[in-house]
């Protein structure tokens, strides 16, 4: 097992490097660079630039060099000093910018993930066991609606409802009067209130998919001959269900858990913009629009690492969950 993990980790290194080159190259592809988008923005506020100033600023940021030179500098900084470069539009180191939003991002994502799994797995089991009952139909309808509605649209609908009923579209993560205030019960309550829509919106998309997967997997398992054998041998229904069927049915969910590591960050970009959430998604969106390439590059690099780590994690989880996979690996 250890050898397997370490080998996978080693293979990750060239993989990450290769992806980082591609990422950096792609970020550079659109015409223009950070300066042209910066000047466009500032000119919209009537700030005046002359050609000399623009050339000087390009040189200052190293934008006058070819992309591979910029890439080499950037990657060297990461490898030697752990320096992810400098965000042009925020005017501070990339790492500072990323970490500023890490807390809120983790809070929202982890709550959403907890909501997703805690709700969808039991719901899936219930629909499978009580197949064609009223509860099953209800969950299926909700499930299909949730899967079929785009997140951001769902967010807008909930915001409109909230605005019409409570006069507040619940933008952001906390009401204006609590921002910059120390934590208090009132603030916590306010945050929880604001979390409802994001958690429902971001949560449902995954939840509904998971319910469906869980349901069909479990239905498959329940009709297997080993279940019949177990029953014939007198095992209790509960034990059959939880010890054997559910464990086997969790297989596809475990193999996708690796991806949800990245969805902690990306899964909700558009919804986060719609709901004005201070999370990482909108940050990447802005960085790409502004051609703030070191910020965007570092962000995507992190994402790559996250996906690769997640995949390994999934493999380990699977091996742990399913003895059959373990045996194949050991051979």
């Amino acid at each position: 097992m250890l050898r397997f993990i370490s080998r996978r980790l080693l293979v990750m290194i060239p993989m990450v490097l290769l992806i980082s080159v591609i990422v950096f190259f792609v970020i550079q592809l659109p015409p223009g660079d950070f300066m042209s988008s910066y000047i466009a923005k500032m000119e919209a506020s009537n700030e005046v630039f002359d050609q000399n100033t623009i050339a000087r600023m390009r040189a200052q940021y190293g934008l006058d060099q070819p992309w591979y030179v910029q890439y080499a500098k950037w990657i060297a900084g990461i490898l030697t000093r752990g320096d992810f470069g400098y965000s042009f539009s925020y005017n501070r180191p990339v790492w500072d910018v990323l970490s500023q939003r890490m807390g809120t991002t983790l809070a929202i994502s982890l709550t959403t993930m907890a909501f997703t799994y805690l709700f969808s797995i039991p719901a899936g089991i219930y629909s499978a066991v009580k197949q064609y009952s009223f509860g099953d139909y209800l969950l299926s309808v909700i499930g299909f609606l949730g899967m079929g509605t785009p997140n951001f649209l769902f967010a807008i609908i909930l915001m409109v409802i909230s605005y019409n009923w409570f006069g507040d579209p619940m933008l952001g993560l906390v009401s204006q009067q609590f921002v910059n205030q120390p934590m208090s019960w009132a603030k916590l309550l306010d945050i929880l209130k604001h979390m409802i829509i994001p958690v429902i919106v971001i949560g449902t998309a995954n939840t509904c998919g998971l319910i469906r997967t869980m349901r069909s997997q479990l239905l498959d398992e329940i009709s297997r001959p080993y279940v019949l054998t177990a029953r014939a041998k007198g095992l209790s229904e509960k034990r059959i269900l939880y010890k054997y069927c559910v464990r086997a049915a969790l297989n596809p969910i475990a193999s996708t858990i690796g991806w949800s590591l990245t969805s902690i960050f990306t899964g909700s970009t558009i919804s986060a913009i719609v709901m004005n959430l201070p999370t990482q998604g909108p940050l990447l969106h802005q960085a790409l629009l502004n051609q703030d390439m070191y910020l965007a590059g570092s962000w995507l690099l992190l994402m790559t690492v996250m996906i690769l780590l997640g995949t390994i994690l999934s493999d380990i989880l699977l091996a742990w969950l399913d003895p059959r996979i373990r045996y194949v690996k050991a051979r």
Partner: peptide, 20 residues
């Protein structure tokens, strides 16, 4: 003067409508 951060211009409209 409190400058509240928004992600999108449409939030200014929403903020005005809801009194924020």
């Amino acid at each position: 003067l409190d400058f509240n951060k928004i992600q999108d211009d449409s939030h200014i409209e929403l903020g005005v409508l809801s009194g924020d």
